[in-house]
């Protein structure tokens, strides 16, 4: 975990840390307040990203992580540069176990961890729960409900309903999300990231699909 980091191999972070993290945070805030709405980040925010990581996922974590946070890396991401990259740029600690992680970066098809394995918060402190950044292959607000991974979302932040098609997400996600929703006010919150696009799924959102 404390192996020396080869700086020559690390991708750069934000060109302007203060203003760029504000831009990305506002995109995150918009995504959480209007669940399922797909937004795209400006490609100028990041020159390059570590192999296997989407620009949006990297940007979200660069904007939110620091010395006070812990990050868990999902299957397939632990071997690459991701851990060294986030430790160097944000100062975050890599969580020793998934149940202790404040943030997690997962790939959509990651079968090793269920939503319920992460920190759920308590009834007295529901904010002490994990925020997951889930990488997927595509995000769009079009499609037909019921079609593979096209979900109909309702809840706070959505006027009537919103359709979200998230490709490359594990098939049992709707079931896991429904269980997550049952634990309200406890539960995890999710950002989906694909390329430079992102969409938020706070624990209040109901998902049919």
């Amino acid at each position: 975990m404390n192996a020396p980091v080869d700086l020559s191999r690390l991708s750069p972070g934000f060109p302007n840390a203060a203003l760029d993290s504000q831009t990305v945070f506002r995109a995150c805030l918009g995504a959480m307040s209007e669940p399922g709405r797909v937004t795209s980040l400006d490609s100028a925010l990041l020159e390059s990203t570590p192999a296997g990581l989407s620009g949006a996922a990297v940007a979200i974590l660069l904007a939110l992580l620091d010395q006070d946070t812990t990050l868990w890396l999902g299957e397939g991401l632990r071997e690459g540069d991701a851990g060294a990259y986030f430790r160097f740029h944000t100062g975050c600690a890599i969580a020793p176990s998934l149940a202790q992680a404040g943030f997690a970066l997962l790939s959509g098809r990651d079968e090793s961890a269920a939503l319920s394995d992460f920190m759920q918060g308590s009834e007295a402190f529901p904010d002490r729960s994990a925020t997951l950044v889930v990488q997927c292959c595509g995000l769009a607000n079009v499609g037909d409900a019921g079609e593979g991974n096209c979900w109909r979302l309702t809840g706070p932040g959505i006027r009537d309903y919103r359709l979200l098609k998230a490709s490359g997400v594990r098939g049992d996600f709707p079931q896991q999300w429904s269980d997550n929703r049952k634990g309200f006010p406890c539960g995890v919150d999710v950002f989906f990231a694909s390329g430079l696009s992102l969409a938020g799924l706070p624990r209040t959102t109901r998902l049919e699909g």
């Binding site: 945070f25 995150c28 805030l29 307040s33 529901p126 006010p185 706070p202 624990r203």
Partner: peptide, 11 residues
């Protein structure tokens, strides 16, 4: 910012 995101998630 992290507090605000959790606040939005638990209205």
């Amino acid at each position: 910012r992290r507090a605000i995101l959790k606040a939005v998630a638990v209205p």
